[in-house]
Amino acid sequence: MSDLSTIKFAKDIRLTTLEMVYHARASHIGGAFSMADILSVLYSNFIRIDPKNPESVDRDRFLLSKGHACTSLYATLALKGFFPKEELLTYGKDGSRLLSHTTHKIPGVEISAGSLGHALSISGGLALAAKRKSANWNTYCLVSDGELNEGSNWEMILLAPQLKLDNLILIVDYNKIQSLGKVKDVINLDSLKKKFEAFNWEVFDIDGHNHEELTSALDQCQTKNGIPKVIIANTIKGKGVSFMEDTVLWHYKSPDENQYKEAILELEKN
């Protein structure tokens, strides 16, 4: 049975994200929406972190690699109480600390990201540190599908099984669209599952909008069996607003007033 609270939280993340993007006339809402369900389930039931003590040494680490989709992470953190919700409306404005790519100056954000292909290596370093210190926290890293074009990711995808980093949980937001078109038309990743299996990762190939599947996969990722885990979350870019779904346009576009209102109505209905 679906967890109604995570579904409600995902809706709140999307509504809050929409508001930020609309007021800032910002872009990247498609990729922010595609990962909203992942964030909801992660932050509701898996990532062990205290919003009032976000630098506690025994917290789980979450690293967002696709920093351009920062709005839904900022929304998630504000809604969870890491910083005041009111601050979200300063997003992208002059002097705001809420940059348009994830910034580590924000409570709860581990690293700044923006240049793609960086966070997985850092995540590997964190997971290695936990191993060397016999600490039991996990490192979660969320990457986009397009950024798997970056060779640096594959350096860590090669190394993590060698180091037996079973405390490293990689999530691919596989929304099938990158900057200039469909992933399959730019560099086809299929079969991503077989690729990760060939690299000796434990793979969970799931519907990234289905909270039961996300929960089940994340539950299984807690197993310490010497193998790093990857969740291939098959998602839809712009998920939640029909006219934004599965189109490259909403990697760039900001909604006008009518689209904003229409999007709210759709999100409220779901």
Partner: peptide, 11 residues
């Protein structure tokens, strides 16, 4: 990867 791992370890 080495530079990224170093960043993670330093954190």
């Amino acid at each position: 990867n080495m530079a990224g791992i170093a960043a993670g370890l330093a954190m």
